[in-house]
Computed example of a mutant assay.
Amino acid sequence: MAIDTEQTVTVFGGSGFLGRYVVRELAKRGHRIRVACRRPDLAYHLQITGNMGQVMPIQANLRFPWSIERAVEGADHVVNLVGVLAETGRQTFDALQSSGARAVAEAARAAGAGMTQMSAIGANAGAPSAYARTKGEGEQAVLGAVPDARILRPSIVFGAEDQFFNRFAEMSRFAPFLPLIGGGATRFQPVYVNDVAQAVAMCVDGKVPGGTVYELGGPEILTFRQMMEKMLAVVQRKRRFLNLSFGAAERLASMMRLVPGAPLTTDQVEQLKSDNVVSDLAIAEGRTLAAFGIQPQLLEAVLPTYLVRYRPQGQFTQPDPQASGPANREEAA
């Protein structure tokens, strides 16, 4: 299969956590990149990931189709990474992950461009979670407009700027306990951000078949509790676990719904009721990282590279097995 190594690629959401890694991977491959985002001034730092003029931030908002069309005009490939974990103001699940994804796909079709859509494991147009439902609707809209599009569904993504391990590591500095919603039994398959970025770049290069939904997971399946234990071991802190039933977590999230930047929403509690791992069908059909020839990174190999700052004395904290890891005591609510 012939590969064009000098394509013009528009990346929506390129200034975000995953986006900066995707832009870097595309720049390494010689592509010209338009970083389409609401605040181009917050994406200027990405220009140094490529040669002069190779990376260009451009203003676009998925709620305004005309801005999408302008950003896509003349592009060879479109990557849509836009998504939110919680709704804020007009940045709703529907506006970004359903209607927004449809608008991007329609613009890509009009421009004659290929497309890669970032989704999530659990995406399903019939899901009870609004996040999962709109991700599923977005997938359907993209494949309807661009049948040979590539859909990527990662499990929880970790890396230096992630909002998961960093959030709980920061919490461990001050909180006497860490919450385990539903007892912390929900299973995840954490995948390294750079592995996902490489998969995106390979989609742009046409190295995997289109019209396919790929599920991306790391080399191990861990429960929520196990991930917390690994995080605590890295930051060398002991913390108690507070078991919260789903009902108690939903009531707590409901009370916090009017708090700006609330750490928990009822929709997130709903998501935690289902495991977030690569399906047996995807494994059987070869629709995983194996299709890209990517050997996924282990959590233990990456967490210490960025969570060390949460240790009691930062990088200067001396290893002490007796002082690290979670406490055995648990409390229930």
Rank of each mutant, 00 (worst) to 15 (best):
Y131H: 15
F188N: 02
T134V: 05
F177D: 10
Y21K: 04
V72Q: 06
M228C: 07
P65R: 09
A145Q: 06
R311K: 15
K238D: 13
L222C: 05
Q163I: 00
V259S: 02
G325N: 07
A110C: 01
V278I: 01
V79Y: 11
Q117W: 03
A36H: 05
G89M: 06
Q315P: 08
F292E: 03
V200I: 12
L42R: 15
A2R: 10
H45P: 09
Q295N: 05
E331S: 04
I151K: 07
G136M: 05
E25Y: 13
V277R: 08
G50A: 11
Q117G: 01
I294D: 04
Q7T: 08
P319Y: 13
V84G: 12
V55M: 07
Y192H: 09
T49H: 13
G286L: 07
M56G: 00
G126C: 00
N166H: 09
N80C: 12
V55Y: 07
M52A: 12
A130R: 15
E137V: 02
D320R: 15
A169V: 13
T10Y: 01
Q117A: 02
E87Q: 15
E331H: 11
Q189A: 01
Q91S: 11
V78A: 09
Y131S: 07
R251M: 11
E106Y: 00
G112H: 02
L303D: 11
R257Y: 04
A107H: 02
K207W: 06
A123T: 08
V79F: 08
L298W: 07
